[in-house]
Write a protein that binds this DNA or RNA. Sequence first.
DNA 1: ACTTGCCACGAACACCGTTCGTAGATAGAA
DNA 2: TTCTATCTACGAACGGTGTTCGTGGCAAGT
Lengths: 264, 264
Amino acid sequence: MFVASTLFVMSTSPSAADPADPGAAAVPPPPWRKAARPSSRRPLSTGAVVEAALRIMAEEGLAGVTMRRVAQALDTGPASLYAHVRDKQDLHELMLDEVFADAPVPVPDPGRWREQLREHTVAQVRVLLDNPGSAEIAMRTMIPTTPRLMAQMDAQIGILRAGGMTPEEAGAAGDLLALYGTAFAFEQELHGGPGQASGAEDAARRIGEITGYLRSLPEGVFPHLAALVGGMAPGRGDPMRHFEYGLDAIIAGIERAAGRESGT
Amino acid sequence: MFVASTLFVMSTSPSAADPADPGAAAVPPPPWRKAARPSSRRPLSTGAVVEAALRIMAEEGLAGVTMRRVAQALDTGPASLYAHVRDKQDLHELMLDEVFADAPVPVPDPGRWREQLREHTVAQVRVLLDNPGSAEIAMRTMIPTTPRLMAQMDAQIGILRAGGMTPEEAGAAGDLLALYGTAFAFEQELHGGPGQASGAEDAARRIGEITGYLRSLPEGVFPHLAALVGGMAPGRGDPMRHFEYGLDAIIAGIERAAGRESGT
DNA sequence: ACTTGCCACGAACACCGTTCGTAGATAGAA
DNA sequence: TTCTATCTACGAACGGTGTTCGTGGCAAGT
């Protein structure tokens, strides 16, 4: 019964607009084989949509995550997704939340707050870098509304409070660290190349061009820049080293700013 | 003479393709009036395209800057733009360059490098904030290839060198400052609302929602976050104050990192 | 058994960036 | 001057995009 009616709809759907249709439709599709396919489990929950979207992002980058592409992966049409996801933006935020699914949520330890802050921030950035595309979402979201991201933020502020900061100081410092971490990860995935995009190649070409241009210029036009490009290689070293340079600078600055006001 | 030949060509061009054409063509187009329109000044240079694009960005945000929209503003078709601009990305970079047209390029003064660095960075961010949409371009560009942006970067590195840093230190510090400035401006324009977008309203709604959600939770789930939202208003104060907090922290950190290695 | 609400989804709408081919203008050569 | 070659402008179209509408079948409440 179920199968039959389904098949009926499928085979006649083009002519469904024409109720008075005899058997004249081009080849009455004998679909014995087909029967199994449409009834083969279609849960199609929010979770399934997010999961499919994440898989696509991992393989084809964030730009590959289109509603049509996700729908196709779940073999259905794009309209079906909107029952489980409000927007594309909403889908993005759910993806970001899922990405942080197994990131640890540290409990603040006053005696170790500096190390904890460093480790926590590094861990967050590592999550973003491990999931290319997620940093772009994070950049565009900034105010977290999903539970896991709120837990991360809460932990971070907890650590800063454990370091003796006032709520205001902790808020400002947390903003700064989150902004830096997110922006850094985004920049990395921009010209680090998420596997598929021309990122790395493009970046290399660009700094090649810029080097050539600088050399072609009369000496002393951009002297400091010219001095720099000499000792520069495109993708040298662990990006994390670079990140930690900035992180340490920021933490030191934060501490100093807090100490200046609270006297410690 | 000129006019006559122009008219001749125009009036006969349709029938030129069909040599065996009698007088039957639908109204042999008498184009006296027409002659003035196509010749009515259409320079359509790269500069004009960029200028139109910037005007649109100011009025409708970066999302409003579509090739079709820009073409319409110059009343032509989108295809015409591609003679003066390689890409949409190319157009974006030209726009960003133009935005920095009258930003001052400081000459490094060793005795004042800290103040200079601060002022220069603040000025750059102010330019981005004054031109909503530009920060998003800057965020997505990162490696400058246009002359004015290179001049800005050169000056910045010059200031850092004047502060006694090695080229490597200056490069890292410059990266960090540029990343921070760009990301900050982008975040501001995200939920600051570029006049047209729902930015501010959306941000307010979001922190309203999040506050309500936090209150609805059993006490002590996100304790630090809950303590924070109490003393938080959506758009309080000058965003620049916020920026300068982070900037001072970063400059202090940079200085410390440089001193640590070079011994000053 | 009937109604009601919900999920799936085909079709369509209004856009988007970009390319192709052609017509007109212009500049250089003869 | 006249012929040719090169360049600009641009209408039309291609292959995408996010999102909405309306319908049709299913399942649960009454």
